[in-house]
Design a protein around this nucleic acid. Sequence first.
DNA 1: TCAATTTCTTGCCATAAGACAACTTTTTAT
DNA 2: ATAAAAAGTTGTCTTATGGCAAGAAATTGA
Lengths: 194, 194
Amino acid sequence: MFDLLIMTPELKKFISEYVHLLDGELEFIAHQFKTKTIQKNEFLLQEGETCKDLIFVQNGCLRLYYLQDDFEVSVWFALKHSSAIEIYSFISETPTNYFLQAIETTEILYLPKTVLNKLYETHPKLQEMMRKFWEDVILHLLERFTALQRDTAEQRYLDLLNKPELLQTIPQKYLASFIGVTPTSLSRIKKNIR
Amino acid sequence: MFDLLIMTPELKKFISEYVHLLDGELEFIAHQFKTKTIQKNEFLLQEGETCKDLIFVQNGCLRLYYLQDDFEVSVWFALKHSSAIEIYSFISETPTNYFLQAIETTEILYLPKTVLNKLYETHPKLQEMMRKFWEDVILHLLERFTALQRDTAEQRYLDLLNKPELLQTIPQKYLASFIGVTPTSLSRIKKNIR
DNA sequence: TCAATTTCTTGCCATAAGACAACTTTTTAT
DNA sequence: ATAAAAAGTTGTCTTATGGCAAGAAATTGA
């Protein structure tokens, strides 16, 4: 039972940004999360598995990617104090095509969807939390979508330069595919800009 | 006050697919929608405006597009009995970059976000409805996203051929940009496939 | 610290899709 | 029915990005 009694101020803050709960309620819900530490390069999720948990990154960093002909295409990075899920698999409850891997040793707090579903019944305010959480996710998705469709590779690189958290934390080899170019092209783009 | 008392079985069905409500509640909520008819080529939303309503298409068809150097890029079509919103603007409450236009004369039912926000208080079950609605939206977005990023133009055209509702309802001139190609390229793709 | 491995850069060539313009076909309106 | 407008097709050329391979630089691990 010990592993249920885990909670951090950052997780509480994360939840509080989506919904106002009574102190006791917030405490109770945050305590439903379990904790786990993943070593660098280990996987939280692999192709064919189903994403069953909402994950909050307490420390470290996770990378979500898929394989295209043996080449890794990174689609998302979850830095500390943010969430990390393979959304499609989590929502649809179907096997994922993605891999969720620790870029460095990472501590997570996670809430199984089965637990979340039960909490909806006892704490209906979680519906509001998740409604708002999904709204946030949608805004992020649309921004990324728009950038990939409308901007040139060079523009996407320039935008990336405005995101120091990513530049500092994520090895460049992962950033190329994240902005939708090959490592070769990224190299050339950097050259043109200098 | 008359225009508040509008509701259709299809709207009730649409809502019921997201949340189970007592008959009276469903009735009440569906009655909060207002109705409007838009003539072909008229706009429900234009660049610079903010998308303030959840829209349900009772009949007809709407097109969502943006302008890129005077060229119209279609990103979504809302056929009858489906929803149509410029999600980014609706959620973020910022001015849109899009146009929402009637492809043919279209009857809509719409619910202002201000009303929705009040309904959340009196009918908390709407939080669940919207939570699930957004989940649906996310699955659609991700599918489209994946297709545009990973598939070739030809593959996207082949996928389109499996969507008779779109092929029948939407003029081809709009379908080209929808699958992410120019009209010229679409023409060539069709030629290659024949 | 130094070799081994990985990552990054660069040159050369290939390719998918776009731009533009001319022409053809289809649709629309009277 | 027919002229005008709109949409679709095709040729030619351009461009952005990718693929591959070789070499340079950086990182890693014992």
